[in-house]
Design a protein around this nucleic acid. Sequence first.
DNA 1: CCAACGCTTTGACCAACATCAAGGCTTACT
DNA 2: AGTAAGCCTTGATGTTGGTCAAAGCGTTGG
Lengths: 251, 251
Amino acid sequence: MTDSTVVPLQALKVSCSNCTLRELCLPLGLNREEMTRLDAVIRQSRRLKRGEALFRNGEGFKSLYAVRTGFFKTCISSQDGREQVTGFHMSGELMGLDGISANVHGCNAVALEDSEVCELPFSRMQNLALEIPSLQHHFYRLMSREIVRDHNVMMLLGNMKAEERLAAFLINLSQRLTVRGFAANDFILRMSREEIGSFLGLKLETVSRTLSKFQQQGWIAVDHKHIQLEQPEQLKQLVAGCANAHPTPNH
Amino acid sequence: MTDSTVVPLQALKVSCSNCTLRELCLPLGLNREEMTRLDAVIRQSRRLKRGEALFRNGEGFKSLYAVRTGFFKTCISSQDGREQVTGFHMSGELMGLDGISANVHGCNAVALEDSEVCELPFSRMQNLALEIPSLQHHFYRLMSREIVRDHNVMMLLGNMKAEERLAAFLINLSQRLTVRGFAANDFILRMSREEIGSFLGLKLETVSRTLSKFQQQGWIAVDHKHIQLEQPEQLKQLVAGCANAHPTPNH
DNA sequence: CCAACGCTTTGACCAACATCAAGGCTTACT
DNA sequence: AGTAAGCCTTGATGTTGGTCAAAGCGTTGG
């Protein structure tokens, strides 16, 4: 066991400059002095338990949040209670961009496992961005990337069949996990079938059935939330036709 | 007839400061000096004929474009040729935000009628935003608004039935036209049934049938592209249940 | 002015996915 | 450890919207 006084100290130390997510998250091409100023603005990280909401639709918007560890969903709901999951978010990804427009959070962000986030007070970030051009530019790029992502989801929801949607979903998860150093073809789903369905515009039974179908074809192995991609090429092939003809590189 | 030398002069004069779209478009809360600097950056407007592309997916990104007059669609297409319309754009609305992330345009923008746009060279806008905080903030808000809009489209595509989608579409068009001083309940569709269907995730036959159904119920009158909303309250009621429970105000 | 093309409407039929329902398994709580 | 609740799977059936086809109407270009 580690000395118990050491762990909390490490946990409290929040700085972009020595964050392992540096490559994924905000800072890009900042010099040491700029990085220090950024560190000064990032608020201490906040821990959430599974099921806990980071922010809720309609609450005042003050900050963006970057996932340090864990997994989140963001969702909106309609007057009569239909829920639409707008995204799943893992380490290094930013949440809350939709709150800027009206100074009110535009969705709910809920932790799907015990998680930790960095808080980025938006008005202070804005001021810093005025003084660090590359930070301003990076913010524009992040927001633009979210727009591109959303457009790809529109293509998925508007034009793709159930099997294609689910294949695209699995491949996308796999790729994002790979970037973070996790296994590409063996992972645990953090969300329920219903949440997958909500994101993909399908009912939970269809998600379940389609996973079973993939399994019968030997493409994947499903054991509840444990998924193994046994023939990821087959999944990729299924998605190839409906993929964006001009895919946007991520960086 | 107006003296022919006067008209071109007026047409060439492009400035935000005396633009009738001032309220809808970019400048918000700028003083006179800031407005002048903005005017210096905005490039002369460009005219497009119906069917002409303003930019295409994959082309280098240099500028954002604001619609002055006319009507546009933006769309992406998949490798195997499926097309997804990601939005329709009318005067005062900005196009091209999805190009920032990769320095490459992320969609095609096509004029659906003879149109005119202002070109906003992005790098010069960025520099100006560094010096005019309210301009920087306004850009963030515009991008955030696009994200909110996209999330609402996801709700539409993921959770709504054909009738609800079409009603939402008509109501949305009506409201945007109203803001611009046009009749709320009597307008010409600039896009084809197929383009409406692509945006709404429906086939053109379904769009046509659903319009006919609305007409039979006496809610609307359809004469080809000429639409009259005779009982807009009925359409609104149809959409009420599936509307965002926490609608984001536009300003 | 006519012909050709594109867009729209409508009908008949069909397929994909949703809905309803039941049973098994896992997890969480006491 | 026992029990209840939630999640997942699978089957049977139903419905919405897609597909295929044909005909009408408008518009455009020669």
